[in-house]
Simulated scan of single mutants.
Amino acid sequence: MGGETVEKEPLSPCSRLFNSPDFNCAIIVTMGCKVKGNPSAIIDGLKHTLVNHPRFSSILEMKNGKKGKPSWVRTKFRVEEHVIVPDIDPDIENPEQYLEDYISTLTTVPMDLSKPLWEIHVLCLNIKR
Results as ranks from 00 to 15, higher is better:
Met1Ser: 11
Gly2Arg: 04
Gly2Thr: 08
Gly3Met: 11
Glu4Thr: 09
Val6Ile: 12
Glu7Leu: 11
Glu9Gly: 12
Glu9Ala: 10
Glu9Met: 09
Glu9Ile: 12
Leu11Arg: 02
Leu11Glu: 01
Ser12Asn: 01
Pro13Tyr: 02
Cys14Ala: 13
Ser15Ala: 13
Ser15Trp: 04
Ser15Arg: 11
Arg16His: 13
Phe18Tyr: 06
Phe18Glu: 13
Phe18Pro: 10
Asn19Glu: 12
Asn19Thr: 07
Pro21Val: 02
Phe23Trp: 14
Asn24His: 14
Asn24Ile: 15
Cys25Met: 11
Ala26Trp: 05
Ile28Thr: 04
Val29Cys: 15
Met31Val: 14
Cys33Trp: 09
Cys33Leu: 10
Lys34Trp: 05
Gly37Lys: 03
Gly37Trp: 05
Asn38Ala: 08
Asn38Tyr: 06
Pro39Glu: 01
Ser40Trp: 05
Ala41Asp: 02
Ile43Pro: 07
Asp44Met: 08
Gly45Gln: 13
Gly45Ser: 15
Gly45Met: 14
Gly45Pro: 09
Lys47Ala: 02
His48Asn: 05
His48Gln: 13
Leu50Gln: 00
Leu50Asp: 03
Leu50Cys: 03
Leu50Ser: 05
Asn52Glu: 11
Pro54Cys: 07
Pro54Thr: 03
Phe56Arg: 04
Phe56Asn: 04
Phe56Lys: 05
Ser57Asp: 06
Ser58Gln: 00
Ile59Met: 00
Ile59Pro: 15
Leu60Gly: 01
Glu61Ile: 08
Glu61Thr: 09
Asn64Thr: 14
Asn64Cys: 13
Asn64Met: 12
Gly65Trp: 02
Lys66Val: 14
Lys66Ile: 14
Lys66Asn: 14
Lys67Val: 13
Lys67Ile: 12
Gly68Leu: 06
Gly68Arg: 04
Pro70Met: 00
Pro70Lys: 03
Val73Ala: 02
Val73Glu: 00
Thr75Phe: 00
Lys76Phe: 15
Lys76Pro: 03
Lys76Asp: 11
Phe77Asp: 00
Arg78Ser: 15
Val79Phe: 02
Glu80Ile: 00
Glu80Asn: 05
Glu81Pro: 02
His82Asn: 02
Val83Thr: 04
Val85Met: 00
Val85Arg: 03
Ile88Ser: 06
Asp89Cys: 12
Pro90Phe: 00
Glu93Ile: 08
Glu93Asn: 08
Asn94Ile: 06
Gln97Cys: 10
Ser104Arg: 09
Thr105Pro: 04
Thr107Asn: 09
Thr107Glu: 07
Lys115Val: 06
Lys115Arg: 08
Leu117Thr: 04
Trp118Ser: 01
Glu119Thr: 10
Glu119Lys: 11
His121Phe: 03
Leu123Ala: 04
Cys124Asp: 15
Cys124Gln: 13
Ile127Ala: 07
